[in-house]
Design a protein around this nucleic acid. Structure first.
Length: 418
DNA sequence: CGTCCACGTCTAC
DNA sequence: TAGACCTGGACGG
């Protein structure tokens, strides 16, 4: 669940679940994880979370100060208390937090915090792919910019004062993934943001950004930004005439407000496993939506958009295979989700499972990743056309016109949120 | 069974 | 600017 909104929602989740919970003992790490051990143990401590861009910080705070047994794990003996431990997490492609009973640990729970109750409950950092990780005694990663959601001013300043930097020589869609300037934007957000403004993804970033106001004066009130100012998608984004209106809908503003929309949806944001994912899917107007085009950028990441790709399109760029899914994941298969428990005896020995080492690495994996980046030449793909039948819709019409977001095939028939 | 794809960084030629 | 790092779901044969 890993773009800025998901990281923030994760911090809210931790604070909600851990409110009033007393944790105890050492922090435990799975064997397979390559992230560091967390040298913290305490008889009684609490957990709080905060987020910044694409990072989450957990703060472990001992409850009774020094009189309790607090010691460094590595020291073995209780030499001295370690007052507070900050741990900074990055989620990679698949990280998230869960809070479960001790005997229901999720698969891939790589860092665990145990509550003091008798049947103990456990806060787990879960990360199937292990692209994520953590740093004990950590600080926000240097080099990442201000949070796009919660430091709007800093974020905006940081971009506009560095436009001469070579980082902005690239297409806007690629620069939006540069966490030095857009800490919190990820692949679905860049698509949604550019789509709202009808900005071609492969236009020089500097060109799109230069001339934006430093101060965003239209929005003096931070609070007004959050809710709903975002329906002014009709703005062109290329003409700089109507300052007021444009400022209200400029790219940097949307980099702030669009992610906040996801936060305000509640739920978990991008998380296909969850029932409440349907709200998020309904929110998407471009990313993975039927009828939108997609193409791989210079880094091999799929860019979703509509209309003109812009002049800096990768020549001979690879395009993702014709989409075929779209169909299955919506419609009604939400109801009978097999997502049920299945928690049986076989689930209990989680410890062991987490342990098993990856045996035969590389080889086939390399093949896959290789193929992705240097794959064959392809061109734009209009998902509507390619999905089931090449004829299908008029891929032409959707290419040059103002996009009319087509819902993904599935109905978002409300489902009870678990 | 196999291939392709995924919400992201990292570092090494 | 390629890989590397990983697991697993969807889909094709």
């Amino acid at each position: 669940m890993p773009e800025g909104p998901e990281l923030h929602l994760a911090s809210l989740f931790v604070n909600r679940m851990c409110e009033g919970v007393v944790f105890t003992g050492p922090v435990r790490k799975s064997e397979v994880s390559k992230s560091p051990e967390v040298p913290f143990t305490c008889d009684e401590y609490r957990i709080k979370a905060t987020s910044r861009g694409k990072e989450v910080m957990l703060t472990l705070t001992p409850m009774k100060g020094d009189d309790k047994a607090c010691s460094r794990v590595e020291a073995g003996q209780a030499d001295h208390c370690q007052p507070i431990m900050d741990i900074v997490f990055r989620f990679g492609m698949s990280g998230f937090f869960r809070f479960t009973a001790e005997d229901e640990l999720p698969k891939h729970a790589h860092l665990r915090f145990y509550s003091k109750e008798q049947p103990s409950r456990v806060l787990s950092f879960v990360d199937a792919r292990r692209f994520g990780g953590w740093q004990p005694n950590g600080a926000w990663q240097p080099g990442r910019g201000p949070c796009i959601m919660f430091d709007n001013k800093g974020f905006r300043e940081n971009v506009l004062t560095h436009l001469s930097n070579r980082a902005f020589d690239r297409p806007i869609c690629e620069v939006l993934l540069n966490q030095k300037y857009f800490n919190g934007i990820g692949n679905y957000l860049r698509a949604e943001i550019l789509f709202r403004l009808n900005i071609p993804p492969f236009v020089l970033a500097r060109k799109v950004l230069e001339g934006l106001n430093r101060s965003e004066e239209v929005f003096e009130s931070e609070t007004a930004i959050n809710d709903q100012l975002i329906d002014m998608k009709t703005c062109d984004g290329t003409t700089r005439k109507n300052v007021k209106v444009e400022a209200a809908a400029d790219l940097l503003t949307l980099c702030h407000t669009v992610p906040l929309e996801v936060v305000n949806l509640g739920g978990k944001g991008y998380d296909p496993e969850k029932a409440d994912h349907s709200d998020f899917k309904a929110w998407l107007k471009c990313y993975y939506v039927d009828g939108m085009k997609s193409i791989r950028d210079h880094n091999g990441r799929t860019m979703w958009f509509s209309g003109d790709p812009g002049p800096m399109v990768p020549k001979d760029s690879k395009s993702p295979k014709a989409k075929k899914r779209a169909k299955k994941d919506d419609d009604d298969d939400y109801k009978g989700k097999k997502k049920v428990v299945k928690s049986h005896s076989d689930r209990i020995k989680k410890e062991k499972q987490v342990k098993q080492e990856p045996v035969p690495k590389q080889l086939k994996k390399e093949m896959d990743s290789k193929r992705r980046k240097s794959g064959h030449k392809g061109q734009l793909v209009n998902t509507t056309g390619d999905k089931n039948s090449l004829a299908a819709r008029s891929r032409k019409s959707s290419s040059a016109e103002t996009p009319i977001p087509q819902r993904r095939s599935g109905r978002v028939s409300r489902q009870s949120t678990q």
